[in-house]
Amino acid sequence: MKEKLEILLLDDETIVGNRLGPVLEKVGYDVEVFEDPKKALNRINEKEFDIVITDIMMEDVNGIQILEEVQKKSEKTKVIIITGYATVALAREAMEKGAFDMIAKPFRPNDLRSVVAKAADSLGYKK
């Protein structure tokens, strides 16, 4: 097992990456931040991440597509959805397609941290 949990963070909002990157790194994760979903997809195809955190509503590529791609690549990877467009339909679609969790924007950094910790837990990483 790797030393550090590897996380890919994708959101077309620059500030989200800028803030959440340090937030997660501070508690000991390895974070790669992406703004462009296409580049993120390429990276996902190159590397198997432990956790993928993705926005839903983005230009060109939808967060659900990212989720599907990740599921195709490795079933082990946990996908966490962060969205400003949370609805029952979206929540159910995400869960149905195998998302690990979903949180609605706006959220506090600690909300994400606890979700990531839960995911890490389920992956067998103990802190």
Binding site: G84, Y85, P106, R108
Partner: peptide
């Protein structure tokens, strides 16, 4: 609106 609000919240908490 949730996007800018989220940005504000994350930044403020940071």
């Amino acid at each position: 609106l949730n996007n800018p609000l989220n940005n504000i919240m994350l930044t403020a908490h940071a």
